[in-house]
Each structure stands twice: as C-alpha cells, then as structure tokens.
Amino acid sequence: MNTIPDRSEEFRALQDTLYFIGGKWRLPIISSLCNGNKRFKDIQRSIPGITTRMLSKELKDMELNKLIKRTVNDDSPILITYEPTSYSRTFGKIIQAMIDWGREHREVITEREIAKKV
C-alpha cells in the first residue's frame, strides 16, 4: 500500500517562518537594527518608503513576538531604543541566504532581458 507521508508539521513550520517574514517591512527592520540603528528615526531613515505609522506598528508587533527589545531611558529627554533579541539574530543566516538568492535571481532575469534585446 502506497501511503503519503504526513507533512503537516513541516507545513506549520513553514507557515511560522512566513509569518515571521510577515510582509515587506519586517526583514528590513531587523536588518536595520542588526546594522546598529537603535532609535526610531534612525531606523525609519534607513528604510526607504516606510511610514512612521507602519514602523510603529511593526515595532510593537515584533516586541510582542520577542524579536526586538524596547528600552525606555527615563532621563530628560526620554530616550527609547530598540535592539534585536538573540532570538531574532538566529534568522541572520536565512536573511543572508535570501539576499544571495535575490542577487542570483536578478542576474538570471537581467541576462534574460539582455538576451531578448540581442
């Protein structure tokens, strides 16, 4: 009898990963934080096109999911900083693999476009 293996756990794990990636802003935010940007305005300036509202929403969601740590310094003026958690840093190899794949993909597409013009 030919049985199909149960892949439901793998599917759930893949869904969890896709949830972490969660759209177009989460990875750029993690990348910005890992590159040393800790203050809200610095993070916003490092990500072209992100609005204040969207950055605020993503930072809150990422804090709830243990991906970043928010620190409030009560001195005058109040200083709020963000930093990636060690847990979110575990995603670094995946981000680098995605960057590498994206570069290779761009080369394939560019070569295809050049071949069409010739």
Results as ranks from 00 to 15, higher is better:
residue 13 A to C: 11
residue 85 T to G: 06
residue 100 D to G: 11
residue 48 P to F: 05
residue 76 S to W: 12
residue 33 L to S: 04
residue 107 E to S: 13
residue 118 V to W: 00
residue 34 C to P: 08
residue 49 G to M: 05
residue 41 K to V: 08
residue 77 P to A: 01
residue 10 E to W: 14
residue 116 K to Q: 01
residue 98 M to K: 11
residue 85 T to C: 07
residue 37 N to Y: 05
residue 58 E to T: 09
residue 104 E to R: 09
residue 102 G to K: 01
residue 54 M to H: 12
residue 89 R to Y: 01
residue 101 W to L: 14
residue 110 T to M: 11
residue 116 K to C: 03
residue 104 E to V: 06
residue 111 E to S: 13
residue 31 S to W: 14
residue 47 I to A: 04
residue 84 P to K: 05
residue 62 M to Q: 02
residue 16 D to A: 13
residue 91 F to R: 10
residue 116 K to E: 01
residue 101 W to G: 09
residue 81 T to N: 04
residue 96 Q to N: 12
residue 112 R to L: 04
residue 86 S to I: 15
residue 54 M to K: 14
residue 100 D to P: 09
residue 34 C to Y: 11
residue 51 T to E: 04
residue 39 R to T: 10
residue 13 A to D: 11
residue 13 A to R: 15
residue 67 L to I: 05
residue 22 G to T: 00
residue 31 S to V: 15
residue 114 I to H: 02
residue 53 R to H: 11
residue 51 T to K: 09
residue 73 N to V: 05
residue 107 E to T: 07
residue 105 H to V: 06
residue 80 I to K: 04
residue 15 Q to V: 15
residue 31 S to C: 01
residue 50 I to W: 00
residue 51 T to H: 04
residue 9 E to G: 15
residue 49 G to K: 03
residue 89 R to F: 03
residue 27 L to E: 07
residue 2 N to I: 11
residue 63 E to Y: 00
residue 44 Q to E: 08
residue 91 F to Q: 10
residue 107 E to I: 10
residue 118 V to D: 00
residue 60 K to R: 12
residue 78 I to L: 14
residue 81 T to F: 01
residue 76 S to A: 13
residue 5 P to A: 04
residue 39 R to Y: 06
residue 102 G to R: 07
residue 24 K to H: 14
residue 10 E to H: 11
residue 43 I to P: 13
residue 79 L to F: 10
residue 35 N to C: 03
residue 71 T to N: 01
residue 55 L to M: 09
residue 62 M to V: 10
residue 67 L to A: 13
residue 113 E to M: 14
residue 111 E to H: 06
residue 11 F to S: 08
residue 40 F to N: 07
residue 71 T to Y: 00
residue 50 I to H: 04
residue 88 S to C: 10
residue 68 I to T: 01
residue 107 E to F: 05
residue 96 Q to E: 11
residue 81 T to I: 02
residue 25 W to R: 08
residue 25 W to S: 07
